[in-house]
Design a protein around this nucleic acid. Structure first.
Length: 926
RNA sequence: GGGCCUAUAGCUCAGUCUCGGUUAGAGCGCACGCCUGAUAAGCGUGAGGUCGUUGGUUCAAUUCCAACUAGGCCCA
């Protein structure tokens, strides 16, 4: 007779092989059909809300691994908060305006652009953004991310654009807005401003000149050695044309400077560290050092401009280096980024006497009307004539060029709009607010604090097309610019209806409320501003979405982005919110690191180490990608490699198989009728339930702390150690051989069911596809349509029994020793399967006390045919425990025949004539 | 060049921070073996680490401090 048919072997349709790549789209379709997101919204009505406000990705390409990581992390938070009892709506967003899209559209259009109106080009930009929003949306959905995908917030939506106009209006009206000069990249031949991304660096040959500026301040008082001499400071530059705009000379605050006396050039002051370099370059051999200075002693002294009869001031700046030159840096605040910052610091004019075509303006003596690059020659000539030129040569260096016309570009100061950091105490109020926000990890606080503390005023204007206009008007009569609440409201209404195209399509008169007159001169003819807003302002006011949708709330509970956003979105959002609402838009801010390759290098095309989300999804499935997100500690760099993916795939299989095995053993279990009350469960099953509570506690706590890698480790170890290699392995005998409806079997199933129900929920936020697939196979069908619409099962205190755990710790430890002994016996070919063995234990006193009541459990948990306790000294040979002094384990092959049904060797096998190959227990079962 | 961050077995993570103190843990992978009633599964045993480097503090440092190296983010 084939007794195998009399066993209760596991049985389930839940497939062992996941085939995620094929299965996931089916599950997505099911979710779509069920409208799972709405179902979750409905079922969680009335629960406390948890608002994670989405940082809008930029809509100009497919998502990369960083975007995928970020979105999955958000989704894990959303799903886990949801299952932890909150109502967690999620409105995804996209950042739509800005230069990258405008540039890409420019390239697609080519020369056609020249014949198009600004609005027509903007329309192309809108279509471009739209295209990629759809693509990215599908990519995010494919990752299993739940959200309001059919109603996201887009910064180019008309109502959002109107909001931007209104928020900008608040700054303008409250007095934070200022207009001032700032140097930007400028292409002389195109006559346009360029963004940083629009310049290309290429090697160029430039003049390199050394010039001496005579001192005006009297140095002889403090330095008598200099008495009676002509004293100069020596500077070096590769842009002679900026000399007319020189207003200062910068020294490094920590460098030493020397004064050298030369027969040809008089006394020259320069950095000590560049003395040798300078002397050899300038060809000076005859000199004497007559004085040394600390740079700080010279700060504020005056020198004379080498060309004009005005003064230039000596200032200090960190960016001065000893690489090349003299350590005394010619500073023209209107023609360089660093020069500009020094100019602000020392309150210098941002002087930039150059027009749109790159020609000196008429008030520039000697060079008026000359194009700056052509003027280089003349400037050098003039310096030479005036006897202030020390040396001229040529250098090859990397210099910025216009990406369009390939000509060299210049820095030119132009009028720009700024939000003042200090006029309305924006900086102070922001710094104060930072202290009230929870930053995770905590160092984020210092990082953003430092940035806000030191940043200059926020330049919010751009000379581009694809963006939200700065809605300011100018009076044609008096030149005054103005804005008012009435104008803001009026324009915002127009924008809400027609989008910001309206600004480009209509005239100033059409855009203004009827009867508007200039508040200064009552003129009635106007022009509109042509600049648009920095896109960081667009996304910076995204918290308005939280106010405008009644199911969201401001401020958000959480903002979550990469650590680069301390300078980006966290930063602009904070400023926008503080500036208009006096409080931070977020209660807490979580940051993650960047995705790097297996050896910690950044992913880049040139390195060839890029792994795309698409690649992972198509080869392994989104679930593996999500498991990766959960498994990595994201506070630092996040590594990704083929090996990591392979490991995760194997781990996934293990998790899946654990679920499958649990399901397989519950095929005949009806929780409603077959559940055994806790107090009547076998000890081992109660032990398992206690372990489940510990796991639940760890996992729920880790979800709260956003520490998903701990969850991954805990769940995985639970499946492998607690379940697979221990509990489930031991349970097999009881599950398979006991009568179907026996208490022992139902006791095991009660525990298994509890474990399955708990586990499937705990992992659902991380592997939502698999969890929901498992959900469909659970024994009891009275449940929500998806695991994601349900809640975690909280820790059940009544399932905890720490004294039981303590007793069993000993059993587990002894088991470990027995397993070692079994392995040795196996090596010696004494046994194969552990059930072939009978084990004799010589126990020291302290052990025998704890084990006396567990003689039978020991046999079961060691999965051997018999365990007997014997006196010390009666055993010969045997394995001596390293853990317990005096514990000796002797493994022998069982002398009894093997029961054909349960595989246990037993003395009673053969005693029953009806079933001569079965043990007593199995005979009874049959 | 500056600000912030990271560095523990081949891989992913514990431990160190708030207590510095016997042989630094886990799983995976690897090697070897068992089973064939979770079977393109399951079980066991074992080998892997001068805790990035160098100094300092200390009776004692992976743990505290400093510098350096490598890498990451943001600036310049």
């Amino acid at each position: 007779m084939d007794y195998k048919n009399t066993l209760n072997l596991p049985s389930t349709d839940f497939p062992m092989k996941a085939n995620l790549v094929k299965k996931e789209p089916e599950i997505l379709e099911k979710w779509e059909k069920e409208d799972i997101y709405s179902v979750i919204r409905d079922t969680s009505k009335g629960r406390p809300a948890y608002i994670l406000h989405d940082g809008p990705p930029y809509a100009n390409g497919n998502i990369h691994m960083g975007t995928a990581f970020n979105k999955v992390l958000k989704d894990i938070i959303i799903k886990s908060k949801q299952m932890d009892g909150y109502n967690v709506p999620y409105v995804p967003g996209w950042d739509c305006h800005g230069l990258p899209i405008e540039s890409q559209v420019d390239q697609e259009l080519g020369d056609k652009k020249l014949e198009m109106t600004q609005s027509a080009v903007r329309k192309k930009c809108r279509e471009f953004a739209d295209r990629f929003i759809k693509i990215q949306r599908d990519e995010f959905k494919r990752l299993g991310v739940f959200g309001e995908w059919d109603n996201p917030y887009l910064t180019m939506n008309y109502n959002y654009e109107a909001t931007i106009v209104r928020e900008f209006g608040k700054f303008a009206i409250n007095g934070s807005l200022i207009k001032s000069k700032k140097p930007i990249y400028w292409c002389n031949s195109c006559g346009t401003a360029l963004a940083e991304a629009e310049v290309e660096y290429e090697d160029d040959i430039s003049p390199s000149i050394y010039v001496r500026f005579p001192f005006v301040s009297d140095l002889t008082l403090n330095y008598p050695s200099l008495a009676g001499k002509d004293i100069f400071i020596a500077i070096w530059t590769t842009t002679p044309w900026t000399i007319p705009a020189n207003l200062a000379v910068a020294l490094h605050p920590d460098f030493m400077y020397v004064a050298i006396d030369t027969p040809t050039y008089g006394v020259l002051i320069l950095a000590e560290g560049l003395l040798e370099y300078f002397l050899s370059t300038a060809g000076i051999e005859d000199y004497t050092i007559i004085e040394r200075f600390n740079a700080r002693e010279l700060e504020g002294l005056k020198v004379k401009h080498p060309l004009y009869s005005r003064e230039s001031i000596i200032i200090l700046a960190d960016y001065v280096t000893l690489d090349v030159g003299t350590g005394c840096v010619h500073t023209a605040p209107g023609h360089g980024q660093e020069d500009y910052e020094s100019g602000l610091q020392y309150n210098l004019d941002i002087y930039s006497p150059v027009d749109d075509k790159g020609r000196f303006t008429k008030d520039v003596e000697f060079f008026a009307g000359q194009e700056v690059f052509e003027a280089n020659r003349n400037v050098i000539q003039k310096l030479s004539e005036l006897g202030v030129l020390i040396k001229e040569e040529q250098v090859t260096h990397s210099y910025p060029h216009c990406w369009r016309c390939k000509n060299p570009v210049i820095f030119r100061a132009t009028e720009q709009w700024f939000i003042s950091m200090d006029k309305k105490d924006l900086r102070a109020r922001s710094l104060n607010a930072i202290r009230g926000v929870e930053w995770v990890p905590s160092w984020g606080e210092e990082r953003i604090y430092g940035l806000i503390e030191n940043r200059p005023d926020w330049c919010i204007s751009r000379q581009r097309s694809w963006g939200v206009p700065i809605t300011i008007f100018y009076c044609l009569k008096c030149g005054n610019y103005f804005i008012s609440q009435e104008i803001v409201d009026h324009v915002a209404q127009l924008v809400e209806k027609h989008g910001t195209d309206v600004w480009f399509d209509l005239s100033a008169a059409e855009l203004l409320p009827k009867g508007t007159t200039c508040p200064e001169c009552h003129g009635d003819e106007f022009r509109k501003e042509t600049d648009i807003l920095d896109v960081w302002f667009d996304s910076g006011v995204s918290f308005t979405v939280l106010e405008q949708r009644d199911y969201l709330s401001y401020p958000a509970d959480l903002y979550l982005e990469g650590s680069d956003q301390h300078r980006g979105w966290f930063h602009s959002s904070l400023l926008c919110s503080i500036g208009t609402r006096q409080k931070a838009p977020f209660k807490s801010v979580l940051t993650h690191g960047f995705v790097v390759d297996g050896s910690g290098r950044k992913m880049s095309k040139s390195r060839g180490n890029v792994i795309s989300p698409e690649e992972v999804i198509n080869k392994y499935g989104a679930e593996i990608l999500r498991l990766w997100v959960a498994s990595e500690d994201y506070r630092g760099d996040i590594r990704l490699s083929q090996e990591i993916l392979d490991r995760l795939t194997e781990a996934y299989r293990r998790l899946r198989n654990t679920f499958r095995y649990l399901l397989g053993n519950l095929y005949d279990f009806n929780p409603l009728t077959d559940t055994i009350p806790y107090q009547e469960l076998l000890e081992l099953d109660r032990w398992a339930l206690h372990r489940l509570q510990e796991l639940t506690e760890t996992v729920i706590k880790s979800y709260k702390r956003f520490e998903y890698h701990s969850i991954y480790q805990a769940v995985y170890n639970f499946c492998v150690l607690t379940l697979s290699s221990f509990y489930l392995d031991i349970l097999k005998d009881r599950l398979y051989t006991s009568p179907v409806n026996s208490k022992e079997r139902r006791s095991a199933q009660t525990a298994l069911n509890e474990i399955l129900e708990g586990l499937v929920r705990l992992v659902a936020p991380i592997i939502p596809f698999t969890a929901d697939e498992v959900w469909g196979y659970l024994p009891n069908k009275e449940r929500p349509i998806s695991v994601h619409a349900d809640l975690f099962i909280p820790v059940r205190e009544e399932f905890k029994d720490s004294s039981l755990i303590k007793r069993w710790d000993l059993l587990l430890n002894v088991r470990k020793e027995v397993t070692k002994a079994l392995e040795l016996a196996r090596k010696d070919k004494v046994i194969g399967h552990s059930l072939d063995a009978t084990v004799s234990l010589a126990l020291p006193k302290d052990l025998s006390q704890g084990l006396e009541d567990y003689r039978d459990e020991l046999r079961t948990i060691c999965i051997v045919s018999a365990v007997e306790f014997v006196d010390e000294g009666t055993i010969e040979g045997g394995y001596e425990s390293q853990e317990y002094d005096g514990l000796i384990v002797k493994v022998m092959p069982s002398p009894f025949p093997k029961c054909e049904r349960c595989w246990i060797h037993d003395s009673a096998v053969g005693h029953d004539t009806g079933h001569p190959t079965l043990c007593k227990r199995c005979v009874q079962v049959i």
